[in-house]
């Protein structure tokens, strides 16, 4: 798919872009804190707060499903992993995230993308819907664009979360604008 077909394109040098997306992804300390806590809980064989682990894994899966809606090349997978590592302050290492992506690929192959999206969305609490959509958007923007399949996946996710298409587009545009600000 060419960039001209994408819903959002952020033209920039890949290094600068990665830095800008990372800054936006980590600018909310509250979000970074709960993501990190969830990642740490996920690392433990016996989590003391299974709810935090589950919440983290849910948003991680949703973000992966959206970001991989147009396919995920090896390089994109690596940058996705780097972005997530920065968002959780290294609470999970590269190898663990890569293994998890492979597991999520298997889940899609077995159950279907639409089914996984609906299933993971059902675990999002009503007060966290926009946050989940925002995180998925940031992660999808990691490669500098939000492609049509990624936008469709976001809209589909929004429909499961009770967030209408216009609002989903606004959320996506809002995050893209923040990344662009960081690029200036």
């Amino acid at each position: 798919m060419s960039d001209t077909d994408a819903f959002i394109v952020l033209p920039a040098d890949p290094m600068r872009l990665a830095a800008a997306v990372q800054m936006v992804a980590t600018e909310d300390p509250k979000r970074t804190a709960w993501l990190r806590a969830g990642a740490e809980q996920s690392r433990s064989a016996e989590p003391t707060d299974p709810g935090a682990a589950r919440r983290f894994q849910t948003v991680l899966e949703l973000a992966f499903l959206v970001a991989s809606a147009d396919g995920l090349a090896t390089a994109e997978r690596a940058s996705l992993s780097l972005l997530l590592e920065s968002m959780i302050d290294g609470a999970l290492d590269h190898a663990t995230l890569e293994l998890h992506f492979a597991d999520l690929d298997s889940a899609v192959a077995m159950f279907g993308r639409h089914e996984r999206l609906a299933r993971a969305a059902s675990d999002v609490s009503p007060d966290a819907c926009e946050d989940a959509l925002g995180l998925a958007t940031i992660v999808a923007l990691g490669d500098g664009k939000l492609s049509r399949p990624e936008l469709d996946a976001l809209v589909e996710l929004g429909s499961h979360l009770g967030v209408n298409e216009d609002r989903v587009r606004d959320i996506a545009r809002g995050f893209a604008a923040r990344v662009q600000e960081r690029l200036r």
Partner: peptide, 14 residues
């Protein structure tokens, strides 16, 4: 086919 979710430490069966 069953898939293993290593992070959640779960074996998923359909």
């Amino acid at each position: 086919m069953s898939y293993v979710n290593h992070l959640a430490r779960e074996i998923n069966c359909k």
